[in-house]
């Protein structure tokens, strides 16, 4: 049945070369843990992406209940975690996944560094990777405010103080991020918009570039 549907579409649109191009490629021996177990270090990039997918999915589901408003934000998080079935799991996935992304990304960066994979001709991919790192930190920072509890509020107080400490543009950056003079209603909506629209959009673009380059240039050679 599935085969027939696939054949029907393939006959008209010739989709086989498309996914073949994406899925069918050699995995060199030196990155295959089945040959050298130590090659598992090459999995960290893929694991980072895996956790990122979990983050996107669980985040999409969380917005079904969450509301970015200073009166109701905390109550809606409390409700979705304690009253909705499996809420504690879905929010838990997003909460712990956020830390796991940073850990995996850090390990991936270490592997790239110690295998020297950032060297010519892959310098651009390193640059894009660093941009992804900054976007991830931004996602973590903006997401931290959304539950609107004490920890969220004061973490953002500190974060914005750090932004303000920047020379010349500090004051401007602070007001721009907070959406006003105080950390309040406008800060929360602003952080929400950045967290669910702007940064994920940027992230997907950067990931696309990251993956395109690795396919184009191939995995770096053995040590």
């Amino acid at each position: 049945m599935l085969q027939k549907i696939y054949d029907w579409v393939d006959e008209r649109l010739d989709i086989t070369p498309m996914w073949r191009d994406i899925a069918d490629h050699e995995v060199p021996e030196h990155v295959n843990p089945a040959h050298h177990f130590s090659a598992f270090v090459y999995c960290f990039g893929g694991l980072t992406f895996f956790v990122t997918v979990i983050q996107i999915l669980s985040g999409m589901f969380l917005t079904m209940y969450y509301v970015p408003d200073i009166i109701h934000a905390y109550e809606s998080v409390y409700f979705l975690q304690n009253e909705v079935t499996h809420g504690v799991i879905v929010r838990g996935m997003h909460h712990w996944g956020a830390s796991l992304v940073i850990v995996m990304m850090f390990l991936h960066t270490l592997r790239v560094f110690f295998t020297g994979s950032y060297k010519k001709p892959r310098e651009l991919n390193w640059v894009v990777g660093v941009l992804i790192f900054f976007v991830m930190l931004g996602l973590g920072f903006t997401g931290y405010l959304l539950p609107w509890d004490m920890k969220a509020y004061f973490a953002t107080v500190v974060g914005l103080e750090i932004a303000e400490a920047a020379p010349v543009v500090g004051g401007f950056a602070r007001v721009l991020l907070a959406g006003g003079e105080i950390i309040g209603a406008q800060t929360l909506t602003r952080f929400f918009a950045i967290h669910v629209f702007f940064l994920p959009g940027a992230l997907l673009g950067l990931l696309g570039a990251h993956f395109y380059m690795i396919r184009k240039q191939g995995i770096s050679g053995p040590l």
Binding site: I54, L57, S58, F61, M64, L80, V84, T85, H86, G87, I89, V90, M93
Partner: peptide, 15 residues
């Protein structure tokens, strides 16, 4: 394993 808690989470009001 990853998707089913989310789906149940989304279906909750209907159930």
């Amino acid at each position: 394993g990853a998707i089913s808690p989310m789906v149940r989470f989304a279906l909750d009001p209907a159930l």
